[in-house]
Design a protein around this nucleic acid. Sequence first.
DNA 1: TAATATCCGTTTGGTAGCAAACGAAATCGG
DNA 2: CCGATTTCGTTTGCTACCAAACGGATATTA
Lengths: 167, 167
Amino acid sequence: MQNRADPRLLDAERLIQERLGDRRLDFDSMLAVSNIYRAATAVRRRAEKGVLSEFGLSWGGFTTLWVLWVWGEMQSADLADECDLSKGTLTGVVKTLEKRGFVKRTPVAADRRKVTVSLTGAGLETIEQLFPRFNLYEGEMVGNLSTSEKRELAELLRRVIVTAGST
Amino acid sequence: MQNRADPRLLDAERLIQERLGDRRLDFDSMLAVSNIYRAATAVRRRAEKGVLSEFGLSWGGFTTLWVLWVWGEMQSADLADECDLSKGTLTGVVKTLEKRGFVKRTPVAADRRKVTVSLTGAGLETIEQLFPRFNLYEGEMVGNLSTSEKRELAELLRRVIVTAGST
DNA sequence: TAATATCCGTTTGGTAGCAAACGAAATCGG
DNA sequence: CCGATTTCGTTTGCTACCAAACGGATATTA
């Protein structure tokens, strides 16, 4: 089933080389980018099926709770920025979190277009209980990597984020 | 605006260190995992707004076309696997691609529960025209990295995929 | 200070994604 | 063979996500 041409490549990667190897393509970039995406999917899926499902939270819901925990009460637009969501999406996520009682919205008196979002007591309790467990799970996900490899990975990705994120 | 405590960290990462630094947390794993996710989002968003939108394709649609190009006609379940989508999601993606005329579904005579999916002429033409451009874009996304760094990145991610992907 | 422009969060309409239920088809056990 | 089980792809019901349109509120400027 598994051929062993190059143990450093995944099976699918080998097939791609075979099929496209004669074309003038940038395989190094291709493998780097596609693995970023595949890793993200795997990581998210595992988190949602594991820790997060126990708390009835999606990845987006968790992120929002976590950002509010770290940053404290914030205005809706800033929260969207920080969660890396569009403002429209954030409205929905906050609505869901509100239903669950984790978050509350407060109109801003000085400018009535604005709204701030903050954790409720239940939300705070939840994230304080959840985050350490989430962090353990993060450790598992990259458990194959040494500390210096984790730092190297984070740093390489940081440079991709900066490039891809600009504009 | 920007403090310069540690230029190797993004602004948000610094704040997190400040706010959570006294807790017993695995920061190296946290930064690695969260950067995987942020990089994937940035990369996908940029691709969809750039190259893919010109062809009216989403990331999932593109992936499906691409897999069919590399692998040829395949059965629905295998296609879902290879695209890393649930079978339910794939039904929808294929339906959309069918509407656009890029893909066709063929019932399998020997087993009438099964269906194969393959590129149409238009689909083939599209992916052959699109992929080289997509690949250029991939090159831009990781343009900050040297060849050996790209390989290092791909390899580190491969190990995360294996760990996170195994149930 | 009135008309205009801009800004903010929400709504809308669309695709994407999943899990679980479903129905048709094939396979298995007796 | 025939009833029970398993195996397919689709459907359903839900959340997530985006862009663009919207409508109320604030700023600008003439």
